[in-house]
């Protein structure tokens, strides 16, 4: 049977998700930060990790944004085939973002014209719509700050490229980010698809749970690559704020997709330590 969901309801849910994501640091990210704090031996790194953990506590308690860069709202929507939406979905999402950001005193960081810049507002959001089975509607809001978004790299490899070349590209992308993108990072990687799809996958990889346990990817072959990359990245000695230490990244999340016989797109999308997202199902 068809389930009817009103655009108005979606607007309210999106608004709430914007607040939750910006005020309450994801549990998995917080747990990874705590475990990094315990493992870190470098005093300065430890002090910075403690400040980051304390910051999350204050943000949650006082309903203050975890970071003043409350990002460009990236919204992922999965619509069950059995759902009919009354009203305009995209406009509901944008209105929800605007209303949530205003309510939470979040930052208006969106300029209408990328070249002329000018006055800034809250939206449009970056909206990714996908279809799924069932009759549920799943919405995720990922506010992406631009300190780290600016470090994104895409490379179109030859189809015969060795895995070592790809790994080197990913590690170098992290090295090039240095201290600027607010380490410790969560490294999102998209491999396969087309150029644009690899970038989408890299972003989507950031939605996956952050964990240092080696079995968090369905494909153990990919999981092994993730673990190896994490080890290499944490030997870079960038550390929290780029001031040294063994915590340069908390996790490497790879998403893969079939691709063309002539190519092998790889995109690296880095997240700062304030990896924020919130999900709801209607």
């Amino acid at each position: 049977m068809t389930r009817v969901i009103s655009a108005n309801k979606i607007k309210d849910v999106v608004a709430d998700l914007c607040l939750e994501a910006n005020f309450i640091l994801r549990k998995d990210v917080l747990a990874a930060l705590r475990s990094a704090f315990l493992k870190e031996r470098n005093n300065r790194a430890k002090d910075i990790l403690a400040a980051i953990i304390q910051n999350a506590r204050i943000a949650k308690r006082e309903k203050l944004a975890i970071c003043q860069d409350t990002g460009l709202a990236c919204v992922f929507v999965e619509i069950g085939q059995g759902i009919r939406i009354t009203g305009d979905l995209k406009s509901a999402i944008n209105k929800g973002v605007e209303s949530g950001y205003k309510k939470g005193s979040l930052r208006n960081s969106v300029v209408r014209d990328p070249l002329q810049r000018g006055k800034s507002g809250y939206q449009p959001a970056i909206i990714h719509i996908d279809m799924a089975g069932g009759n549920k509607l799943k919405i995720t809001v990922l506010p992406k700050g631009f300190g780290c978004e600016n470090k994104t790299q895409l490379k179109m490899f030859r189809p015969t490229a060795k895995i070592e070349e790809i790994k080197k590209f990913i590690v170098e992308a992290v090295r090039a980010s240095g201290p600027d993108a607010c380490p410790p990072y969560i490294v999102g990687v998209g491999i396969g698809g087309s150029a644009d799809y690899a970038c989408f996958l890299a972003k989507k990889a950031l939605l996956r749970r952050v964990t240092t346990s080696p079995r968090h990817h369905v494909t153990s072959r990919i999981s092994k690559i993730e673990q190896d990359l994490l080890k290499q990245i944490n030997l870079l000695n960038i550390g929290p704020m780029g001031l040294g230490g063994k915590t340069t990244a908390l996790a490497v999340n790879i998403e893969i997709y079939p691709t063309h016989i002539a190519g092998l797109p790889v995109c690296v999308n880095i997240s700062c330590h304030a990896l924020r997202s919130a999900t709801a199902e209607i």
Partner: peptide, 18 residues
């Protein structure tokens, strides 16, 4: 570039940018 100031607060979130 600070976040907006919530009601009753002196300033919103205000960390450094690159």
């Amino acid at each position: 570039g600070p976040a907006k100031t919530p009601r009753g607060k002196i300033i919103g979130s205000c960390g450094p940018t690159t």
